[in-house]
Design a protein around this nucleic acid. Structure first.
Lengths: 249, 249
DNA sequence: TTTTAATTTGCAAAATATCGAAATTTTAAA
DNA sequence: TTTAAAATTTCGATATTTTGCAAATTAAAA
């Protein structure tokens, strides 16, 4: 492996996570910690990141918590993505549908995990291609221009022929009684196919969308196994969802 | 093996994989590492790639920002794309395969033309999605990480079920007698399917690649209807290609 | 404080680069 | 075609760079 390749991986990791540990990178790149340290030292000298004890942080990144903790404040979607990643194990086969929360999930997949990832989203596919240890399979179809997500009969047909461990989807609207709904009929059909193609469908949604609905139904809430929001699972807003029997993280 | 041939192989490998190891290339080309090193040194001096310890990387690889203007021979590729666009009429259905020349074509499609565009390339698809009047259809499959182009049985199967007006493909190598060839077997199969899926296959290639060849054949030159280079069609270098009966623009 | 983890330093092995001479191939002229 | 000159390539010897390891030192955490 060339030094330039390692540097690229390191910079990408820093860009995504703001902070990296030398030991983690060492594992990902299959080189000694010493080598990673030398790389980081060089990148620091080139002003491409800032070297800190035990690792490196993005330039201009300040830990304003005042503590030396390893957990930094993430936005809502980052928090959701992090929880979702906790479900995954090496060797899993998953579908990542699309949308901003799913994109965050794709970005935050650790470089050292091995997965087979299907996706219908161009931006998600681009992110997945950056991870050395993933097998990436794009499910094609007619592209929705703004969302850059494939849909249509071809995409649905492809989905009908696979069964994966987990699928991760977002939704426009979710309600305990009305289930997952959308404004757009086309995306409802594709998402339903995604749900059916996985043993464990996982809904990623910010709490803002709870208790809202629209005209087309993707599926019932009970068709989903796990719902992940940025809230603490004990939050009162999640009460009736929890009562419905779905797992909440 | 002539020096020019080695240079072509090296540049193509860098274009596809973003990086090469001198030792790998030495083995592939059956020449000493010294020779490969000298070749790479020369190509580096010609600003066609960047030499690094142990190998070489694509231009713009190290500083991974603003990559587009670092593409080799961007001017020539722009000229090629412009000529290719002259073929198109409103309502045409086309396939744009992938690679930097095809990407340039996608970028330069005027926003007032209506087309249905199939593609196997993520970056091409992203560009096409920016054009309001296009219908964009991504052909999915297993993604090649570096080139971000779909391949595999699923992609080929999808291609076998369509017949479009024009297809636009690049090639690693092209020769009057040996036709279009590649170093990589996987991409040969997909490109062949693209050619077969179109009434008028169009080859886009910079003149540098003329009279070069490698081990796997995509198709004969006669399977291609139109070849477009940055040269004037009357250029002497194109003589024997013209004699073969293919249209040259 | 103690304990643990990370860094520094020096070093040796491995990989890569450089240089010059010999061998080979290519080119051009006879 | 043959031959000689030129260019290119290979090989060996020697430098340089890179890498991983371990002991001593320093910094962080409990």
């Amino acid at each position: 492996m060339l030094k330039a390749e390692r540097h690229r991986v390191i910079l990408n990791e820093v860009a995504i996570h703001n902070r990296i540990l030398l030991t983690d990178i060492s594992e990902v790149l299959n080189v000694s910690v010493d080598t990673v340290r030398r790389d980081v030292t060089q990148l620091d000298a080139e002003k491409k990141l800032q070297k800190v004890h035990g690792g490196a942080v993005a330039l201009g990144y300040v830990n304003n918590t005042g503590e030396h903790d390893k957990v930094y404040a993430l936005n809502e979607k980052g928090q959701i993505a992090k929880k979702a990643l906790g479900l995954l194990e090496n060797g899993n086969v998953i579908i990542i549908h699309g949308g901003t929360t799913c994109l965050e999930l794709a970005r935050m997949i650790p470089s050292n995990i091995s997965l087979t990832c299907f996706t219908l989203s161009l931006p998600v596919a681009v992110e997945l291609c950056k991870k050395p240890k993933l097998e990436v399979i794009m499910i094609g179809g007619t592209m929705a221009k703004e969302s850059q997500i494939a849909s249509g009969g071809s995409a649905i047909h492809d989905l009908m022929n696979i069964k994966v461990d987990y699928s991760f989807i977002g939704t426009g609207y979710v309600d305990v009684n009305f289930g997952l709904t959308e404004f757009d009929y086309e995306s409802v059909q594709v998402k339903r196919a995604v749900v059916n193609a996985s043993k464990t469908p996982v809904l990623l949604t910010i709490s803002e969308k709870l208790n809202s609905r629209n005209r087309y139904k993707t599926c019932e809430l009970s068709d989903i196994d796990v719902m992940i929001t940025e809230l603490d699972p004990s939050d009162e807003k999640l009460r009736e969802f929890k009562d419905s029997g779905i797992k909440i993280y």
